[in-house]
Amino acid sequence: MGFKLLSKLLVYLTASIMAIASPLAFSVDSSGEYPTVSEIPVGEVRLYQIADGVWSHIATQSFDGAVYPSNGLIVRDGDELLLIDTAWGAKNTAALLAEIEKQIGLPVTRAVSTHFHDDRVGGVDVLRAAGVATYASPSTRRLAEVEGNEIPTHSLEGLSSSGDAVRFGPVELFYPGAAHSTDNLIVYVPSASVLYGGCAIYELSRTSAGNVADADLAEWPTSIERIQQHYPEAQFVIPGHGLPGGLDLLKHTTNVVKAHTNRSVVE
Rank of each mutant, 00 (worst) to 15 (best):
G122N: 15
I104K: 00
D125R: 08
T140N: 05
S137E: 01
V265L: 12
F236Q: 11
G78H: 11
D214M: 07
N184I: 05
M1R: 06
F26K: 15
T114W: 00
L6R: 09
E150V: 04
R226V: 07
E233V: 11
H252A: 04
G89W: 00
G2Q: 15
R120H: 06
G198L: 04
S139N: 11
A87F: 01
Q228R: 11
D248P: 07
L81V: 11
G89L: 02
P239Y: 01
E172R: 02
A21G: 13
P138C: 05
G43K: 06
R142G: 11
Q103N: 15
G169Y: 06
Q49K: 14
A19K: 15
E145S: 14
T140D: 04
S191C: 04
S181N: 01
T207C: 06
S27R: 13
L97Q: 00
A165C: 06
F174C: 02
I40A: 07
Y68M: 09
T261L: 13
P107Y: 07
P41R: 09
K8V: 15
V212Y: 06
V189D: 03
T134Q: 00
A25V: 11
E150F: 02
Y231P: 03
V189P: 00
V28Q: 10
R226Q: 07
D85I: 00
Y12G: 10
G177R: 02
Q235K: 10
V54P: 02
A259I: 09
W88L: 00
H117W: 00
I201E: 03
Y34G: 08
L217C: 04
D79V: 09
S223T: 10
G148R: 09
R110Q: 11
V194I: 09
A95S: 11
I74Q: 01
G158H: 13
L97E: 01
E150W: 02
R110P: 05
L6Y: 14
T254G: 13
E145A: 15
G163C: 01
P190I: 06
G169N: 03
L10Y: 15
H115Q: 02
N71G: 02
L143W: 07
G72Q: 02
P69F: 08
W88P: 00
L82I: 11
Q49Y: 11
Y196C: 05
G105D: 08
D119L: 01
K251M: 13
A87N: 04
W55K: 01
N262S: 13
G89E: 00
Y68C: 05
P138Y: 10
L83D: 01
W55P: 03
A87R: 00
W88I: 00
T153Q: 15
S208G: 11
K258T: 12
Q103D: 15
A94P: 04
G53M: 08
S38D: 12
A130F: 11
K91A: 15
A218V: 13
G163Q: 06
C199P: 03
S27Q: 15
S38W: 11
A234K: 04
S264A: 12
A15T: 11
D164W: 05
A179V: 06
G131R: 07
Y196N: 04
K258M: 13
G105M: 08
